[in-house]
Amino acid sequence: MLKDITLGQYFPGDTVVHRLDPRTKLILVVLYIIALFNAKGWGAYLLVLAVTVICMAVSRIHPRNIFKGLKPMLFIIALTALLNIFYTQGTPIREGWIITWEGIERAVKMMLRITLLIVGTFLLTYTTSPMALTDGLELLLKPLNRLKVPVHEMTLMMSMALRFIPTLIEETDKIMSAQKARGADFETGNLIERAKALLPILVPLFVSAFRRADELAVAMESRCYHGGEGRTRMKQLRFCTRDFIALILGAVFTAAVFVMKHFGL
């Protein structure tokens, strides 16, 4: 079923990770990515891996959900690994082979890097509701307002898009069921037949998406929405002690990776 897509889905919970300010989590993810891409030796990789596993354990996200989210990425991960195995210069593992020891090492590291990158960002979206995420993003990007970047409008668009993904998925599901009940067949036939079979889904979906957009615009205007200026929020974000602790830990972690890089670990 379409509903079972896990990519970037929020799992409600009440752990320390869930309760952190979304801004803290966003900064931590940026630090995490910087650290990940500066990890060179095995020691640094092990450190990043260990930190990721600890974060996963603390946030109580079931590993099964992580693997489910990783599934669509498997192809990319495998392809990167393959390319690295075959296109790295070095000492061949056997006389006359293209595969080198260096290639294998780099492939493993690349696989690890991509997997950790995905898992790390998953932890953010799994533990933060989309609304909190866009709120945090808006506040973090606020300084860009001075450069005439329409931050409020952009984040509003983002949160609306996120808000309507489940609605549209549900709607698609419903329309698909209705057309299936009328004998529509989406699973057999060649490529052209299948593409044609999508028409009975797409037309009603677009019609209803535009209707929804229209209704939403009217509803917002009738509640006097007129842009971000002077707007207050219902849930004020506030940094607490745990946020400072988390940020300090994140900074220490990133610094450690850089130190390890310097010493070639």
């Binding site: 419903k174 209705a178 009940a181 004998g183 009975p200 037309v203 009603p204 209803s208």
Partner: peptide, 17 residues
């Protein structure tokens, strides 16, 4: 069975295309 058992969904007008 879908030919023998016809199902009209809620708000079926949204399926017209």
């Amino acid at each position: 069975v879908k030919r023998r058992v016809g199902l009209v969904f809620q708000y079926p007008e949204y399926q017209l295309f």
